[in-house]
């Protein structure tokens, strides 16, 4: 009830949430790119540093750069950078996803499959529609299993169940678990309305103040 710290949720879709730790981690994931023009003085920044620190990155260089940087450099009018689709968003993998999304270890392949995939749509790939469709259908296809596993497991080690889930699915799993756990502990008579941690601490502080 009275959580003192409520984490900022990750954004999804085109919008990242600026203050979400999850999104900061997600946007740190690397994306394969190609420099379409020479990028002066950026060799060191882009991890291609030779002996000369302020050297240019030559046109045609293959780069692996974080999503946030790729977003910053990408411009659909001036071709500075072209973005390659990571393999799990390509057609061959999309076929695997549509066959049975439940068997896939999204954590190993992701772990930000949905968030990162949604962000990829910022780069105007001709396959955008198919990517968006696959991501959505994957979520729908995996929903039942996440719901059932999160709502059936009480007081058990859940690490096996969440091992193959993407980060977004893990958050969802925890929400389901909380619903179940709260109910079960209520049923056993362990849940009562109590003062929040903050209030309890505050009372202690006041107490100490009076003493001194």
């Amino acid at each position: 009830m009275g959580e003192a710290y409520v984490p900022v949720e990750a954004g999804l879709g085109f919008e990242e949430s600026f203050l979400s730790l999850g999104d900061i981690l997600m946007s740190q994931e690397r994306l394969p790119c190609r420099a379409e023009i020479a990028l002066p003085r950026l060799a060191a920044v882009l991890g291609k540093a030779g002996p000369e620190p302020l050297a240019a990155v030559p046109e045609g260089t293959k780069l692996e750069i974080p999503l946030w940087l790729a977003k910053g450099l990408y411009d659909n009018k001036r071709r500075i950078l072209s973005v390659e689709l990571p393999k799990i968003y390509r057609e061959s993998w999309r076929t695997v996803f549509s066959a049975d999304a439940n068997v896939i270890d999204l954590h190993k392949l992701g772990p930000f499959y949905y968030g990162f995939g949604s962000q990829l749509l910022n780069f105007d790939s001709p396959e955008n529609v198919e990517i968006a469709q696959t991501i959505l259908q994957t979520f729908i296809g995996r929903f039942r299993r996440i719901m059932d596993s999160s709502q059936n497991t009480y007081n058990e080690d859940t690490s096996v169940l969440v091992a193959r889930l993407d980060e977004l699915e893990r958050v969802l799993f925890q929400v389901g678990q909380k619903g179940l756990n709260d109910f079960q502990s209520w049923e056993r008579g362990q849940a009562q309305i109590t003062a929040t941690d903050l209030v309890q601490k505050y009372r202690k502080i006041k107490f100490i103040d009076l003493d001194s």
Partner: peptide, 9 residues
């Protein structure tokens, strides 16, 4: 500068 209107969901 951080524009809080944009930064906060």
């Amino acid at each position: 500068k951080v524009d809080l209107l944009k930064a906060v969901a």
